[in-house]
Write a protein that binds this DNA or RNA. Structure first.
Length: 589
DNA sequence: TTGACCATGATAATTTCG
DNA sequence: CGAAATTATCATGGTCAA
């Protein structure tokens, strides 16, 4: 509370306090960090290829990201500048087409479209790198047809795939096979398979076609077509396969684990990153997110394996997945264990053992009253239709039995406990009950996140510098703290003032030794700011963020617009900032 | 193929609070 | 009386088992 708490937060960044001197010192001494593509960022002087767009915001935005002015203008002219996500995709595609030669495997072009990038991106050709027929032709009869076929569609050679299957056995998973082939390829000298450019383009946005194959096949998208445009066509997306049970690479309470996975070269840290969002996003959203986040495969985990409430979320991160450990003690994982007092009143016909996802709104008092009246009319168990009504409502609103015939929504502090926060984490500081529910409903489940982040503990015994975007009530910070990972410098970006206050007051109550800086808007966090901060701290070790889910979540009847939605599109700022950090970190090394 | 179940935020109207 | 809190109402796209 040393004078600089919440008051400063209404404006941009809290530089004008104790750390100013520190910054100045660093700035004069080290300047190895520059904004990637620095030329493009500042050098906008050259004549634009299209005068019409000279002052387009989108144009500047993308030029700032390192695309050529010419390319951006062209794409904007074609697609308009409203849909930035679309534009970015087009730019990536265009860049990939431009800079990577045809992949090794021959593309079978649809004769009806001479489909080249320039004029007719809209021409779809219905072909594959291997056409289906070709694959069929090439595959000799064997029990491994399916796996082999899949691997070939991913762009691997038949012989490589066969060797891998032979070596690892027929029951090996696709991932293991891909892993094996990948290792074999490297051992064999990369040139054999990868176009030379690909190896050089680590910090580029461009993704090679081959990489996209991994993306599409492993992530469950439909097979890509000969023309890249097809890939982007949204009608063409297939549901990402969510794991069942939803345990990601493993959870402490289940025995099945994956300890190895292939992380694409571009994604390898440091900096480590950890991105979160709702698992049940509209089709194609996770494919897009994954594609931006360096093609890392999402890890879908339901927090019901960590606590008594479900919370199905997807996480994309580049953390190791070996030797994870959970926070102790393990939280109770059934309703009765979590809320022993409810057992007494719990009717036998309510068979729930877990709560559903904790949401941003709660059931009304009126509703609980209606339920009480519906149930108390009957001596014993109510008839089926009443049971069904009551159970439906209980499931919908996560009601628990707190008295004879009496249900109630969870109290905010109970939600805090379920989510792994300290009790009263969100209490006080002028926050209303409604807002507490809202903040909690949008938060991480701490035990789940901590389990994933636990691998950082032995890597950073002296603590980490954390960049936390969309911090909310500080789920990541709390998780790291509970893991015993010291927080050296934390830059926390969060729009809501009450949330910032919550994190700030938690920070002070837990006697943190490091520094907490907060910002209001991720969009203000540009290359200069980052450079300034990274010069100060010596870079970030971890970039965490769960971008807004409101345009993705099923309950949103009004604006479930997908990743392009007003708030959810801030994901692209997560990507932008992460990419800046990655570039700066790699330059400094 | 069908139906049960699940997940889930925005908004306007209404009530309560200060 | 205005602000804040509460409440009712709104839909869709997905999985899964029958």
């Amino acid at each position: 509370m040393g004078g600089d708490d919440s008051g400063v937060e209404s404006d941009n960044f809290d530089w004008n306090t104790e750390d100013e001197l520190e910054i100045e010192n660093y700035q004069s001494s080290s300047s190895c960090l520059t904004v990637p593509n620095g030329d493009a960022v500042t050098g906008s002087g050259e004549a634009s290829s299209s005068a019409v767009l000279a002052n387009s915001k989108a144009l500047d935005h993308f030029v700032g990201m390192g695309f050529s002015r010419e390319m951006v203008s062209k794409v904007i002219q074609e697609y308009g500048e409203e849909n930035e996500a679309k534009l970015l995709e087009e730019l990536l595609t265009y860049k990939a087409l431009e800079s990577s030669p045809q992949p090794q495997q021959q593309i079978v072009t649809d004769p009806s479209s001479s489909g080249n990038a320039g004029s007719s991106w809209d021409d779809f050709s219905d072909t594959d790198i291997f056409s289906d027929e070709e694959i069929e032709k090439n595959i000799s009869d064997s029990e491994n047809d399916d796996t082999l076929r899949t691997l070939m569609k991913m762009g691997y050679k038949q012989e490589e795939a066969l060797i891998a299957i032979e070596r690892l056995g027929q029951n090996s998973s696709l991932d293991e096979l891909v892993d094996f082939i990948g290792v074999a390829q490297i051992a064999k000298a990369e040139d054999a398979l990868l176009p030379p450019e690909e190896k050089l383009r680590y910090n580029d946005y461009a993704k090679s076609k081959k990489r996209r194959f991994y993306d599409y096949e492993v992530l469950g998208r439909k097979k890509p077509r000969g023309c890249e445009k097809k890939i982007i066509n949204e009608d063409d997306e297939e549901a990402l396969h969510l794991p069942n049970p939803m345990i990601g690479f493993g959870v402490p309470t289940e025995s099945s684990f994956r300890t190895h996975r292939r992380i694409p070269e571009d994604a390898i840290g440091p900096p480590y990153f950890y991105y979160e969002n709702v698992a049940l996003a509209p089709k194609g959203v996770w494919q897009t997110i994954s594609r931006f986040l360096y093609d890392v495969e999402p890890e879908f985990v339901d927090s019901k394996f960590f606590c008594a409430a479900a919370r199905k979320r997807g996480y994309i991160h580049n953390l190791p997945i070996q030797n994870r450990f959970p926070l102790l003690p393990l939280p109770p994982r059934t309703i009765h264990e979590a809320f022993p007092l409810t057992r007494k009143w719990w009717p036998s016909w309510d068979t729930r053992t877990k709560l559903n996802c904790l949401q941003t709104c709660i059931g009304s008092a009126k509703l609980t009253e209606r339920i009480r009246k519906a149930v108390e009319n009957y001596e014993g168990d109510p008839p089926d239709h009443v049971q069904k009504y009551v159970l439906d409502q209980c499931r919908k609103w996560n009601l628990v039995w707190v008295g004879r015939n009496k249900v109630a929504p969870l109290e905010p502090d109970e939600v805090e406990t379920l989510l792994g926060f300290p009790r009263n984490h969100t209490r006080g500081g002028g926050i209303s009950r409604t807002d507490r529910y809202k903040s909690l409903g949008n938060s991480f489940q701490v035990d789940t996140v901590a389990y994933h982040l636990s691998v950082l503990k032995e890597m950073y015994p002296n603590g980490i510098n954390l960049l936390s975007l969309f911090s909310g009530i500080g789920g990541a910070e709390v998780a790291l703290h509970r893991l015993g990972i010291p927080l050296k410098n934390v830059v926390s970006v969060e729009k809501s003032e009450v949330n910032r206050n919550i994190v700030r007051s938690w920070w002070e109550q837990t006697n943190q030794k490091g520094h907490l800086y907060d910002m209001e808007d991720v969009r203000e966090l540009d290359g200069d700011r980052l450079e300034q901060m990274m010069n100060t701290f010596g870079g970030f070790d971890l970039v965490v963020g769960g971008s807004p889910c409101n345009n993705l979540a099923g309950s949103n009847r009004v604006s479930r617009d997908g990743l392009e939605g007003k708030e959810s599109s801030l994901f692209f700022d997560y990507f932008r900032i992460l990419d800046l950090v990655k570039n700066m970190m790699s330059k400094c090394r």
